[in-house]
């Protein structure tokens, strides 16, 4: 079986979501090689297992992000890109922004 090569991607957290990741906004990560190409659903599982420092329910609920977090794939709303099924490419930029409500 042909394995997909490892890929490097940029992750960003903002709007307060970074507080779940020790306050670090930008992470450059390498996803290991696997038989299928990585999709966003698998990325969320990877983040939960490898990056989330505390209270995962404030980031992930079920198999998707919790309500109130907007996901951007290369500066576009993930809804335009296939959401959880989007196949990650090397050097993709994935942003998780918590919605602000203050004024």
């Amino acid at each position: 079986m042909k394995m997909a090569a490892p890929i490097s991607i940029h992750l960003e957290f903002g709007g307060g979501a970074e507080l779940l990741f020790d306050g670090v906004k930008t992470h450059h990560v390498t996803l290991p090689s696997q038989s299928e190409p990585w999709d966003v659903k698998q990325l969320l599982e990877w983040i939960k297992a490898n990056l989330l420092k505390e209270r995962p329910e404030l980031f992930i609920q079920g198999t998707t992000v919790r309500p109130g977090i907007l996901v951007l794939i290369n500066d576009a709303d993930w809804e335009l890109m296939g959401e959880l099924d989007y196949k990650l490419q090397d050097q993709d930029n994935i942003v998780f922004i918590s919605t602000l409500h203050g004024g």
Binding site: G16, R66, P67
Partner: peptide, 25 residues
């Protein structure tokens, strides 16, 4: 359309809790 479901209340931070630099708003 963007936020079909409201966020869980415990995930919402107000300016009086989280603070805000005045020039940002």
């Amino acid at each position: 359309c963007l936020y079909a479901k409201p966020p869980p209340p415990e995930t919402v931070t107000s300016c009086s809790d989280g603070g805000v630099l005045g020039v940002v708003p």
